[in-house]
Design a protein around this nucleic acid. Sequence first.
DNA 1: CGCTTAACTAGTCAATTGACTAGAAATTGG
DNA 2: CCAATTTCTAGTCAATTGACTAGTTAAGCG
Lengths: 222, 222
Amino acid sequence: MAKKTPTPRKRLPQAEREAQIIRDSIPFFASRGFSAPTRDLAEHLGIHQSLLYQYFPSKDDLIDRLYREMILGRWKREWEDWLRDREVPLKDRLERFFRAFTDGIFSYDYMRFFFLAWMDRPYARDHYSNPVQARIFRIISSELRHETGLPDHDAWPMSAAELEMHHAFQSSIFYYGVRQFIYGVTPRMTRDEFITQQVELFLAGAPIQLRAMAKAQNAPAS
Amino acid sequence: MAKKTPTPRKRLPQAEREAQIIRDSIPFFASRGFSAPTRDLAEHLGIHQSLLYQYFPSKDDLIDRLYREMILGRWKREWEDWLRDREVPLKDRLERFFRAFTDGIFSYDYMRFFFLAWMDRPYARDHYSNPVQARIFRIISSELRHETGLPDHDAWPMSAAELEMHHAFQSSIFYYGVRQFIYGVTPRMTRDEFITQQVELFLAGAPIQLRAMAKAQNAPAS
DNA sequence: CGCTTAACTAGTCAATTGACTAGAAATTGG
DNA sequence: CCAATTTCTAGTCAATTGACTAGTTAAGCG
């Protein structure tokens, strides 16, 4: 048997090696699941297994770190401004927001990693109980009410029914990504077409529902 | 140290023991994930670990068996008849169907088990690419077209846009269960209220969309 | 009650796993 | 080019794991 050629070693500065481990571990765990052995991970990274433990105290710490890296800086504050800009038609605002938002999360790595975390790590709920942040509900609700000629939240607090209506809207969009990357089924419309369609559907149905709620709940006049 | 009391042994006929293992393994794996050790499972079942291997050749075989047990017999043929019964208003038909359907799947065990399978077992896609069976799309689409006064599928085949519209509708309902059991967030409306709301929302918006599609795609007259 | 048979368990094995230690190799500054 | 420093690897350890074997216990039938 021929002697194995010695591994060509690449020495990187600490910061770079750490960044590489983090970057390349995400797709690894996303596809293999968190129970995949560290030896396989090391092979995937092109390093020896023991090196992992010089950068991270344990496998769990590494995974926690990956988790935090992924949620950090994903939310863009300006999206909220986009949504509130009444110079632009609401339909366009919503489309623009959902395109930007889903840009960041509709990927195999992101979707799988987060579902794995939700199934496996109890803390995932606390940090990010739903990828569509709750604050966005308030803004969209506010804009929709304005569009529909209904009072704002001070005069008429958001009911469970209204909140759930927004949940349903956003979940229909989010589920496009679930179908694509969790179920592995390619939807038959492009993401952009789908978002356009869903926004139109929402803007057609929601005002009717909202007015019915206002009537049923005796909302004050606008 | 006091001597451990010997395990009180319970001898069951084969069929019963197998049924018990299957029944009680589902909540175990649903909560612990498929990588949980067989020793823990045996403890949960109240039997010795080695007994598992007299009923199932391997852990994977057991999990595959659980998977099949869960999908088998879940779909009720009569649901399709309910949906097609034009004596009943479409709204009522849809509500009745989604109540019955979600009755079977909105549970911690079912939701978690299936998401675990989707993340972990490639075959899960083939058997059940989406819990809302594709055939139901055709039926609902058909009934909605009839209600809206548009031609049937023979005269005007279902477009990608129409299909996606139905996907979105059903996913908004399914996602209620995801929020509850995967994210662990209790929605603020009951399931029944939510279904009623979503059906109303759908019936308000979908006909408008559908008519727009018919126009854009030059559908023949009904 | 005793015999037979099938259900069940204790205990074991090899493989895999996360984690660690000691030392080799590569980089850098002088 | 050499010494100091840091990156990296080989090899190891104990614990855990899926799977198995041999033997024990309980049930059922005469």
